[in-house]
Design a protein around this nucleic acid. Structure first.
Lengths: 161, 161
DNA sequence: AGTGAAACGACCGTAGA
DNA sequence: TCTACGGTCGTTTCACT
């Protein structure tokens, strides 16, 4: 679970990230398995120094190195963003929605929706069941569904541009 | 760029992913730098076989191993989803929006918005400038802003649950 | 926080079932 | 598509700056 936007104080609180660490992150955004020695050559640091910095960055939650997948190729062909209106404690409602397996992204927002949730399903039946279930969650007043038709951009490289 | 939802045919078209490959993906979702030998022990395969499968999975775009970062800890404190109405060629408009640096996620949807775009900015000034710019893009009719208040869930582990 | 060196382990190409 | 093996390179630990 992330710590962004109210999820709690940063665990490591590593302070501002310097340019060398940003350069390291940039390398790992291109290829999460690039060797420390290689990164060291690119950023002008020894292999051991790179490794220490990567350790710190991951420990403090600034960065994590993970596999990200293409839902379509894994058989999940229905993706949608749900705009949700809720009452009372929005965080509590959002957490109940976030607890669902098919929800991969969930947050409290300011605007005409209180909560946004991205969901991913194998087919229309699953999606319909999921929406029905979310509408039955305590505190959920209404949902509006935005079916994904064409994903045009999805980037993971933050803070290094 | 992803190939999901109309972005083009799957490059590798690797066919259905079997359970062993899913197990490998699962390992790499936990830790993108886990050694192939280690993964091999977990899934019952030799190091070389794991390596070949990972190669195929990444080449075909089923999976990529990357560093993902926490925008907040990198000094980007304003995040929002924009719901956009547009005319004519939605894909063309979405691509113009997607071309902007601060846009990290952009897609064409079915629903009361035509396009959704997630944006990330250092501060309110940057965000305001960005929204103004998007509203000036050819084909954009209107935008609605959903400011992120509290991120409750963000998961990258797809297809292995 | 960084470097350098030596032992260890991972990675990669190739050959073969 | 997998296993087996040897050469190469990356990683890890530790002593030092």
């Amino acid at each position: 679970m992330s710590t962004q936007h109210g999820g709690g104080a940063a665990p490591g609180a590593a302070g501002p990230i310097d340019d060398v660490s940003k350069a390291i992150i940039e390398q790992l955004q291109e290829d999460g398995r690039r060797s420390y020695a290689n990164i060291g050559k690119a950023v002008g640091l020894s292999e051991a120094a790179v490794r220490q910095r990567v350790q710190k960055l991951t420990d403090s939650g600034v960065m994590q190195i993970v596999a990200v997948t293409d839902p379509l190729q894994l058989g999940f062909s229905r993706q949608a963003m749900l705009g949700i209106k809720a009452d009372d404690d929005l965080v509590a409602v959002a957490d109940r929605i976030a607890a669902l397996n098919q929800v991969d992204y969930c947050l409290v927002t300011a605007g005409s929706f209180d909560i946004l949730a991205e969901v991913i399903c194998a087919n229309d039946d699953d999606l319909l069941r999921l929406i029905t279930r979310i509408r039955g969650i305590d505190g959920v007043l209404s949902t509006e569904t935005f079916m994904y038709l064409s994903l045009r951009k999805q980037e993971y490289n933050w803070g290094t541009r």
